[in-house]
Amino acid sequence: MAVFIQQLINGLTLGAIYGLIAIGYTMVFGIIGMVNFAHGDLFMVSAFIALIVFVLLTSVLGIGSIALALLIVLVVGMLLTSLWGWAIERVAYRPLRGAFRLAPLISAIGVSIFLSNFVQVIQGARNKPTPPMIRDVIVLFESQGYTVALAYKQLMIMVVTAILLAAFWYVVQKTPLGRAQRACAQDQRMAALLGVDVDRTISLTFVMGAALAAVAGTMYLVYYGVVSFSDGFVPGVKAFTAAVLGGIGSLPGAVLGGIVIGLIETLWSAYFSIEYKDVAAFSILAITLIFLPQGLLGKPDVEKV
């Protein structure tokens, strides 16, 4: 039982990170109907930015307080990653709006290959370890000699995810920007006729997705303490799985899907085999798409002629 609860905590943490990345997928897919294949690699880029800024703050500028340093890392990381997201959309996707169906997807695959290799060339191929940032844990209870603990960093990840989900949900549901986004998602041409700046709205969607990817990247770095240039692909595919599982286009669905994927992956590793955890995640993707294509919280897709 104690092991199970510990795995539950670990799974929730992992799921929160997937959920943060998944929001970026789900928002972009919801608005322009494209799988932003480079989103996983953007997450990796943001982890690298966080790493560099963190090292710069602590060892070069000598900021002693980890909490302050992390806050600065988070803000700077979100800003710079948003710029990346904006630039990628501007250069690689916007010229392809209205092009044939597969063009943006292939362009996105190109961006994905470019980003991971760019980081490899520019930062080196080796894993980048950081010193552990937050070590303290809260001991919840002990049973049969097994300690169930909630690390502060796990708590931080869950709280940050909850706050950001609430904030973004508010933006999408209650603000003019969110209204414009939902309008574009329904019908771009009609939205444009009614005075919505479609290009700007889509750009801002990418910026929002990138900012969340930056949060996920920072959390990933804090949680695992290591990052490498190839770390974007698998979390990216899993986050996409989460977005699909939760129902594409739905923000709470993305986080819910992320948590489900995180839990399945952690529990599978704990009770079955750690080697096949990715197989389990990928199989869930296939099974969901085949039997539940609208996802847990999504609306069914109506086929139009």
């Binding site: 560099i52 090292v55 060892s59 520019i122 930062q123 080196g124 370890p129 950081t130 010193p131």
Partner: peptide, 25 residues
């Protein structure tokens, strides 16, 4: 200008491992 924004800090500062495993920039 955008390129500059994209390059800072990813290109400007390269992380390297020191002897003791500490990262230096």
């Amino acid at each position: 200008l955008v390129t500059l924004g994209l390059c800072v800090p990813l290109v400007t500062l390269r992380t390297d491992s020191e002897e003791g495993g500490e990262l230096i920039l």
